[in-house]
Simulated scan of single mutants.
Amino acid sequence: MCQLWLSIYNADYGLLNNLFKALGLRYRQKWLSETSKAIYAVAFVNAWQWMGYQFALIMAGMKSIPDYYYEAAKIDGASQWKTYWHVTLPLLAETYKLSLIVSLTGGIKAFSEMFIMTKGGPGNATYTLTYIMYKAAFREYRYGYGMAAASIMVLECLLVIIIINRLVRQSEDFYKPRKNLNFKAG
Score class of each variant (00 low, 15 high):
97 K>V: 03
91 L>S: 07
144 G>A: 10
56 A>N: 11
135 K>G: 06
53 Y>Q: 08
82 K>L: 13
82 K>E: 13
51 M>H: 03
81 W>F: 15
114 M>F: 14
71 E>W: 01
88 T>C: 08
82 K>C: 07
161 I>F: 03
77 G>N: 09
136 A>Y: 01
76 D>Y: 05
157 C>R: 04
92 L>N: 05
58 I>Y: 02
14 G>N: 04
145 Y>C: 01
6 L>D: 12
150 A>H: 00
123 G>S: 14
177 P>T: 09
95 T>E: 09
120 G>D: 05
146 G>T: 01
177 P>W: 03
90 P>I: 09
28 R>W: 08
106 G>C: 08
83 T>W: 00
130 T>S: 15
162 I>V: 14
111 F>L: 14
90 P>S: 12
146 G>H: 02
18 N>W: 04
139 R>T: 11
74 K>A: 15
144 G>R: 04
148 A>L: 11
45 V>M: 12
39 I>G: 00
166 R>F: 12
119 K>W: 06
43 A>T: 15
174 F>I: 11
153 M>E: 15
40 Y>Q: 06
170 Q>H: 06
60 A>K: 01
180 N>Y: 14
179 K>S: 13
96 Y>H: 11
78 A>Q: 05
54 Q>R: 07
172 E>N: 11
176 K>Y: 06
153 M>R: 03
102 V>M: 15
53 Y>L: 11
56 A>P: 02
8 I>M: 13
138 F>Y: 13
114 M>P: 09
1 M>N: 08
16 L>T: 04
55 F>E: 04
97 K>S: 04
31 W>R: 00
90 P>C: 08
169 R>M: 08
176 K>S: 10
136 A>M: 10
25 L>Y: 08
21 K>C: 00
52 G>E: 01
15 L>A: 15
5 W>A: 03
128 T>F: 06
131 Y>T: 07
98 L>N: 12
160 V>P: 05
159 L>R: 02
107 G>Y: 02
13 Y>D: 13
14 G>P: 06
101 I>D: 05
181 L>P: 09
163 I>Y: 10
146 G>R: 01
98 L>T: 14
157 C>Q: 08
178 R>P: 05
8 I>Q: 04
20 F>E: 03
130 T>F: 02
50 W>P: 00
185 A>V: 09
21 K>W: 00
